[in-house]
Design a protein around this nucleic acid. Sequence first.
DNA 1: GCATAATATGAGTCACATTCATGTTGATGA
DNA 2: TCATCAACATGAATGTGACTCATATTATGC
Lengths: 307, 307
Amino acid sequence: MNVTHIMHLEFRHLRTIKAIHEAGGLAKAADVMNITQSALSHQIKGLEDQAGVELFVRRSKPLRLSAAGMRLLRLAEQVLPQVESMLAEFSGLRDGRAGRMHIAIECHACFEWLFPVLELFRKNWPEVDVDIRPGLAFDALPALLKEDVDLVVSSDPEDMPGVTFVELFDYAPVFVAASTHPLAQKAYIDAQDFRNETLITYPVERQRLDVFSQLLIPAKVEPASIRQVELTAVILLLVASARGVSVLPDWVVREVKYSSDYVTRPLTKDGLTRRLYAAVRDQDLEQPYMQELIQFARQEARKLQNA
Amino acid sequence: MNVTHIMHLEFRHLRTIKAIHEAGGLAKAADVMNITQSALSHQIKGLEDQAGVELFVRRSKPLRLSAAGMRLLRLAEQVLPQVESMLAEFSGLRDGRAGRMHIAIECHACFEWLFPVLELFRKNWPEVDVDIRPGLAFDALPALLKEDVDLVVSSDPEDMPGVTFVELFDYAPVFVAASTHPLAQKAYIDAQDFRNETLITYPVERQRLDVFSQLLIPAKVEPASIRQVELTAVILLLVASARGVSVLPDWVVREVKYSSDYVTRPLTKDGLTRRLYAAVRDQDLEQPYMQELIQFARQEARKLQNA
DNA sequence: GCATAATATGAGTCACATTCATGTTGATGA
DNA sequence: TCATCAACATGAATGTGACTCATATTATGC
């Protein structure tokens, strides 16, 4: 008698146990499983030897499960559906119904248009696992290559093998100030105008803020002070209260454009224009759900521009 | 490219996925699993081919799980502990810690002493699955052979191969009547005394009631009427209210012996004596928990006798 | 780029699950 | 109680496929 009891259990055994129980006997189970009765007999014998417990009541002729056998059946009925469920998800992955859409956004204000897009997207693609991954704004593109994320919203396209930057839409970073602010009188705002102002920004590195990368850094201008705020709504509140000025994408302020509390002005005489991209692995770009997400994003942007 | 996608998933694959994830690479995982790196490489390649989805990110060198791979990992982390848990129970079955104790009782009044016994038993043997199976009083012994139950409480031992009848304790069926009942004056009760009485019994066949099998059937006496009642307490209540007489095991009435409402009398001049047995499969008789249950039953009986 | 560590590949071997043929055992009905 | 049949067990042969060994290929860090 073997005393190791290092049970060599396999899914085949679970299916066998289940079939024998449901078919009500070994011979019928063998028939259901398209296998010989002999194979099943050998199989369960081997299983019992390894388990070291009796799994079947052998004194009765349509073979029945013993107490231990019932325990094994319970395992089978827990485990097999879990496997089936995963297999179904894989099937979805293969034919493009399912997938993963973990998004990294480099631009803080993008939440404004991303949320409605994702809400729509999730309704159309319930089997796609949607998530927004914060905290990797800095190395979002490496994360894309390493498949930690599947889409990066960025305004600085790079030349990367295996990654495509798909144009989403253009926007203009605009100056925002309280209606009562002296600069509200100017037709447009220059870098120099920030020299004596308190600038309110998102709490991220300067390189990733349009106002710095496109205006202040090239002009080597430093604002009088900087205040960092997380939420767009709070930034607008502070601006309206004349606690400082800010620079935000036009779509953000367009929605509440005619509020009397603050005004917007173009940056530089001709205005700044920036372009937003979706960085995606080439392989994923062909996925139907990826195509549709990009469509949704462009539609949402158009809505905001026309608001 | 294979398009069948009839995935031949095995536990080995789940363990591999888990190990690669935890060890952080294929080579390290191979080391942990005491298997060659080549084997794992072949294994996951085969798995990916069959699954039809990429399970790993192959562009990075310590091999990492892809989105689909993470899904498989989730399955592994659900399923493997369930298997371990079952294996632990089997281990308990082998060394006698665990087991099943499904009890069939032929005798209705036995609940009285069985419940306290089982309460104690369950505390000492938490891994044994205890249950009382009603409704098979008639064919309890066949059920014992078929392993539907594991212990039958019976007072009629039979000679069955593979089954042992272990003595539990002796008891006396005694006559019970209201203190005011005329028969309460007699020193002992005969079969003939029942001729004009209403007999209260449990709702089971006559053969299985001591008063019939031991007294009335041999004497060919039929009571004036019979009333069937489920609960022992209710029987005593009815007897005390002079709605009829009954015959119960001595231990049942001994507890409340000195109640002024009813009295007990021996049956026949010398009194009847019956013996209760536990019918057990020979194989189970050696189990330590079975031995201890029998001990507990005898102790409890002794307590009741001396009450 | 070079060195190195990590993974992939191919051929060969061996274990083991299955099949086929047949033996053995419970169940069922006269 | 016996006969009969259906259900299960057993043994030898077979073929698949998982593993190892040896070696090629590919990422990564300096």
